[in-house]
Structure formats: structure tokens, C-alpha cells
């Protein structure tokens, strides 16, 4: 499958595990390979999962980044789900993973990921995106370059504009 990573379209073979109705986080069987497991599965099957060489975890929008407090360095990828693009909680989750928990690895946006939100996602620390499969990924990637300047600090740019550049004062003075 193709995803956007570090501003480029790349091939990717991580598999996101989503639990079915009948499955429970304690007992679900996790296939071998590069799997991104739900946070609840990580919390329930931690010991077994720790033995894997490569592991990813994903958070739902109503889960807290703080639950991964001492664990962020154990994952090759952390993903955050957007159940609907209008669910803005995942932006704060990403912010908290990066800023509060100091996570520096791949942070991937999954779910209802659309071109017009990509710019904001990138600003709060996402560096990988799985655009919704019914959309052209070549179009989606354009969303990353909608703006070339912004006012406030966030994760991608740690300084607000007023600390970065010399802005003009009232020229009529």
C-alpha cells in the first residue's frame, strides 16, 4: 500500500489491526509481521508484544497519549486514528505525544485522512499519512504545501512567527 511519509509517496507494509466485534484486546491473536495494534491490545498483551522486533500501536481519538507515558520508545510507529476528519481530538493527542511524551519516531495519521486536513496534521507532528483509500494519494499530498508560513508555534515549528522573523512595525511612524 502507498502512504505519504516525510512528504513523499512511499510503499508501506505495516498492517493496522482493528478489532472485530467478537474480538477482545486480551485474547486477540496477533499475526506475525509488521502490525500496528490498538492501544488496548498493547496494554493487555504487553509482555508478549515486547518480544517482537518491530511493533506499532494506534490510539483511538478518545484515548489519551499519557497511557503510553513510559513506552513511546518501544514502537517503530505510533498511529492516531481519525474516525471522522472533523474529530479534532487526534490533533491534541499528536501534540501530546510529541511535546509531552517526547516521541520522535514515525507518527502516522490513519482513518478519515483527507487532503484538506493534512497541513494541520503535519503541523501538530504527524509525519506519515494514510489518506482515505477512495482518494488519489497524488492529490492528497498537495495538502501538505497549502501554506508556507504561519503565526503560531506548534510541533513542526517550535517558535511562533514573532520569535522567528523581524516583522514590520507601523511604517507611518
Amino acid at each position: 500500500m502507498k502512504i505519504i511519509k516525510n512528504k513523499a509517496i512511499v510503499e508501506d507494509n505495516w498492517i493496522i489491526l482493528r478489532l472485530g466485534e467478537q474480538q477482545s484486546p486480551e485474547s486477540v491473536l496477533i499475526p506475525d509481521g509488521k502490525i500496528i495494534v490498538p492501544l488496548q491490545v498493547w496494554l493487555q498483551q504487553r509482555e508478549a508484544l515486547l518480544k517482537r522486533s518491530e511493533l506499532g500501536v494506534w490510539l483511538a481519538s478518545d484515548e489519551r497519549a499519557e497511557l503510553l507515558k513510559d513506552d513511546v520508545d518501544k514502537f517503530s510507529v505510533i498511529a492516531v486514528d481519525f474516525p471522522k476528519f472533523s474529530d479534532g481530538r487526534s490533533y491534541s493527542i499528536a501534540h501530546n505525544l510529541r511535546v509531552r511524551l517526547g516521541y520522535t519516531g514515525e507518527l502516522r495519521a490513519i482513518g478519515d485522512v483527507l487532503r484538506d486536513q493534512l497541513f494541520y496534521m503535519q503541523r501538530v507532528g504527524f509525519d506519515a499519512f494514510e489518506p482515505r483509500p477512495d482518494r488519489k494519494i497524488e492529490d492528497a499530498i498537495k495538502g501538505l504545501s497549502d501554506f508556507s508560513e504561519f503565526y503560531q508555534k506548534s510541533v513542526d515549528q517550535k517558535l511562533p512567527l514573532f520569535r522567528r522573523v523581524q516583522r514590520s512595525r507601523n511604517l507611518s511612524l
Binding site: 479534532g88 490533533y91 501534540h95 501538530v124 503565526y151 506548534s154
Partner: peptide
Amino acid sequence: RQWSTFHPEFAYLP
């Protein structure tokens, strides 16, 4: 105004 304009984290509030 400037701070809130296109604030990336708070564009999809409840």
C-alpha cells in the same frame, strides 16, 4: 487574532 488564525490543533473543536 494572529495566534488563533489557522491554529493547527484547534481547527476541529467540538
